[in-house]
């Protein structure tokens, strides 16, 4: 199944709505709740990143039996130093963003923790394209 969602830059009041919608879909598919939680935690972080740091973008979600492939693609400005961005606690978030409770520097580290395969393509001044693959099992818990 293929679904896409648009993410608007700076729209913090709606940050998290996409991960909630995808959660509702996943729960109908007999996916274990441990996997559902892993997916929505990673997606939520990626979604907030797009809202907080980019010019906007989209979430592309492909669900097949036993795996979910979720891509988060924004229109820039890219991550200048990806290794630094993957460090826990490191953040470029502005004071304004931090005041709203975001920007703790756990975004990318949390995504890595919750995905089975993660690939990030980015460059300063260009798009950032995050590809997350989750292997999912059936079951209630």
């Amino acid at each position: 199944m293929h679904v896409t969602f648009k993410v608007t830059a700076g729209d913090f009041s709606n940050a998290g709505k996409i991960s909630s919608s995808i959660k509702t879909l996943l729960k109908q598919l007999n996916i274990s709740s441990v996997d559902v939680k892993r997916i929505i935690v990673a997606l939520y972080e990626a979604e907030v990143n797009v809202v907080a740091h980019s010019y906007g973008g989209e979430v592309v979600c492909d669900i097949e039996p036993h795996q979910a492939f979720i891509q988060v693609i924004d229109t820039g400005p890219g991550i200048p130093d990806l290794d630094l961005a993957m460090t826990e606690g490191w953040s470029t978030a502005t004071a304004e963003v931090r005041e709203m409770g975001f920007g703790a520097g756990m975004g990318l580290p949390n995504i890595r923790k919750n995905t089975d395969e993660l690939s990030i393509q980015t460059q300063a001044g260009g798009h950032t394209h995050i590809m997350m693959r989750f292997y999912i099992s059936e079951g209630t818990i």
């Binding site: 879909l25 729960k27 598919l29 097949e64 039996p65 059936e138």
Partner: peptide, 23 residues
């Protein structure tokens, strides 16, 4: 213990097919 009520099917593949159809 959990009870299931939201699931479209116990089989993930069939559940996906049903979800596609519903959409």
């Amino acid at each position: 213990e959990a009870k299931h009520s939201l699931k479209l099917d116990q089989d993930m593949g069939l559940a996906l097919q049903k979800m596609e159809k519903a959409r």
